[in-house]
């Protein structure tokens, strides 16, 4: 745990304002940026903690990107830190949206935007694939874990379960495993 590190409110705001400003297209696109800012640049979280953070952000009500900011802010600076980090995350989107709200009809027909986004989509896919491979390398140490990752990938790709369903299933399996392991342990202790 590195909670004692000096993390100022200004740092929290700037970090998440930066991530929020370039957050294009859904919660997953955030991961490469978050990894860069929170893990590699600020060193607030390890890679593994970031994966846990992301899982937790999905099971809490609310917007995943904002939840992530809130969790990081809360860990270092409590309720105020959580608020500041969340405000950072929504700053850029709010300003852009207010600007667009008056002239939105013309923007949807602006081809420059469409082209920009056509270039961004495969870029995000490339960034995400790199993140996914790193996550698999770190999160999977045994054949079991590779199996779980494969099953989750197939279920998600085939839209058999949404992200929340998948994570809750993972939590349920973890609890069952824990209870089973505890029972095995008490059995071993019992005299024959």
């Amino acid at each position: 745990m590195s909670d004692h590190k000096k993390v100022t409110l200004g740092m929290l705001y700037r970090s998440f304002a930066g991530v929020g400003a370039v957050l294009f297209g859904g919660g997953y696109a955030m991961l490469p940026l978050l990894e860069r800012e929170v893990v590699e640049r600020r060193k607030w979280y390890t890679h593994q903690e970031m994966s846990d953070l992301y899982a937790l952000a999905q099971v809490i009500p609310g917007v995943i990107a904002v939840n992530t900011a809130i969790l990081v802010g809360h860990r270092y600076r409590g309720a105020i830190g959580a608020t500041i980090a969340a405000l950072g995350m929504i700053s850029a989107p709010t300003v852009v949206m207010i600007t667009l709200a008056t002239s939105y009809a013309t923007v949807t027909k602006w081809t420059l935007f469409t082209r920009l986004f056509d270039g961004l989509r495969p870029s995000v896919a490339g960034l995400l694939l790199a993140v996914a491979i790193r996550m698999i390398q770190r999160g999977c140490k045994s054949r079991w874990e590779y199996g779980i990752a494969t099953a989750a990938c197939i279920a998600a790709a085939g839209s058999l379960l949404g992200p929340l369903g998948l994570i809750l299933s993972g939590i349920a399996i973890g609890i069952i495993w824990h209870l089973w392991a505890k029972r095995q342990a008490t059995k071993m202790e019992m005299p024959q």
Partner: peptide
């Protein structure tokens, strides 16, 4: 124990999203 299951689940989900 829960996290050691959830971590590969998240990794698989991200791989699916990228694909």
């Amino acid at each position: 124990r829960i996290l050691s299951i959830v971590r590969p689940v998240i990794a698989g989900m991200v791989l699916a999203a990228a694909t």
